[in-house]
Amino acid sequence: MVDVAVILGSASDRAIADKAIEVLAKNNVSYDLQVLSAHRNPDELDAYVRGSDAKVFITIAGLAAALPGVVAARTKKPVIGVPVSAKLGGLDALLSIVQMPKGVPVACVGIDNGDNAAHLAIRILQR
């Protein structure tokens, strides 16, 4: 069993994930890292989320940033979205993540802020 699942929409987002992983590791929080795109790997993503025993999901995505919402639609567990500054300074990803429909909540941290995503996950786990 892992505490946090860290999902990247693309391997190019690894630097952001590394920030989150560093904080989780320093705090002895177990994690699993996966690269699964909501667009390129929808079936694998669906199977992973539905089968995961993680207590919290950190989802890292740029551009359309569909990943956090797709994950939140498939679990009742907390989902934290990290927008990536791939285009438009990350504003496009930020707006995509914070504008979830009612009933599909996603917490959102600042652009490229994998560190804060991990800190938020740790606070959620401590409740």
Results as ranks from 00 to 15, higher is better:
residue 17 A to I: 00
residue 78 P to D: 10
residue 28 N to L: 06
residue 49 V to E: 05
residue 29 V to I: 15
residue 76 K to F: 09
residue 90 G to I: 12
residue 91 L to W: 14
residue 46 D to W: 05
residue 59 T to N: 02
residue 88 L to M: 14
residue 37 S to L: 13
residue 64 A to P: 08
residue 22 E to I: 03
residue 80 I to R: 15
residue 94 L to W: 01
residue 53 D to W: 05
residue 85 S to G: 06
residue 79 V to W: 14
residue 20 A to S: 15
residue 24 L to W: 06
residue 35 V to A: 12
residue 16 I to N: 03
residue 63 L to R: 13
residue 46 D to N: 08
residue 59 T to I: 03
residue 33 L to I: 10
residue 62 G to V: 08
residue 98 V to R: 08
residue 99 Q to T: 00
residue 81 G to I: 10
residue 91 L to I: 15
residue 64 A to G: 10
residue 74 R to K: 15
residue 53 D to L: 12
residue 31 Y to S: 07
residue 93 A to K: 03
residue 19 K to L: 03
residue 103 G to P: 00
residue 46 D to A: 09
residue 81 G to S: 05
residue 39 H to E: 07
residue 103 G to F: 10
residue 64 A to M: 03
residue 80 I to L: 13
residue 49 V to N: 05
residue 63 L to F: 02
residue 85 S to R: 06
residue 60 I to R: 02
residue 71 V to R: 04
residue 57 F to K: 14
residue 45 L to C: 11
residue 58 I to V: 12
residue 53 D to A: 15
residue 87 K to M: 09
residue 34 Q to A: 15
residue 48 Y to L: 01
residue 75 T to C: 11
residue 32 D to T: 10
residue 60 I to C: 04
residue 61 A to P: 00
residue 35 V to N: 11
residue 28 N to T: 12
residue 50 R to I: 09
residue 60 I to M: 07
residue 54 A to L: 13
residue 72 A to L: 09
residue 69 G to F: 11
residue 40 R to Y: 05
residue 29 V to P: 15
residue 81 G to Y: 11
residue 82 V to F: 07
residue 26 K to Q: 06
residue 99 Q to R: 14
residue 63 L to Q: 01
residue 33 L to N: 12
residue 50 R to E: 06
residue 88 L to W: 10
residue 77 K to H: 01
residue 97 I to V: 06
residue 57 F to T: 14
residue 85 S to I: 01
residue 27 N to G: 05
residue 98 V to K: 12
residue 98 V to I: 15
residue 73 A to N: 04
residue 73 A to K: 10
residue 102 K to Q: 08
residue 91 L to D: 13
residue 37 S to C: 04
residue 46 D to R: 15
residue 70 V to W: 03
residue 19 K to Q: 07
residue 97 I to L: 12
residue 53 D to S: 12
residue 36 L to D: 06
residue 57 F to P: 03
residue 61 A to I: 00
residue 88 L to I: 10
residue 56 V to I: 11
residue 35 V to K: 08
residue 83 P to A: 05
residue 17 A to M: 06
residue 60 I to F: 13
residue 92 D to C: 01
residue 49 V to Q: 05
residue 80 I to Q: 13
residue 34 Q to M: 08
residue 37 S to F: 07
residue 39 H to T: 01
residue 23 V to F: 14
residue 45 L to P: 04
residue 44 E to Y: 03
residue 25 A to G: 06
residue 62 G to T: 02
residue 25 A to K: 14
residue 103 G to W: 08
residue 37 S to N: 08
residue 72 A to I: 06
residue 42 P to W: 03
residue 61 A to C: 01
residue 22 E to P: 02
residue 85 S to W: 05
residue 25 A to T: 09
residue 48 Y to Q: 00
residue 100 M to G: 12
residue 96 S to P: 02
residue 25 A to N: 15
residue 102 K to V: 01
residue 80 I to A: 12
residue 64 A to N: 13
residue 59 T to H: 01
residue 75 T to G: 09
residue 86 A to E: 02
residue 38 A to G: 07
residue 34 Q to C: 06
residue 38 A to H: 03
residue 49 V to A: 07
residue 89 G to K: 05
residue 63 L to N: 00
residue 101 P to K: 10
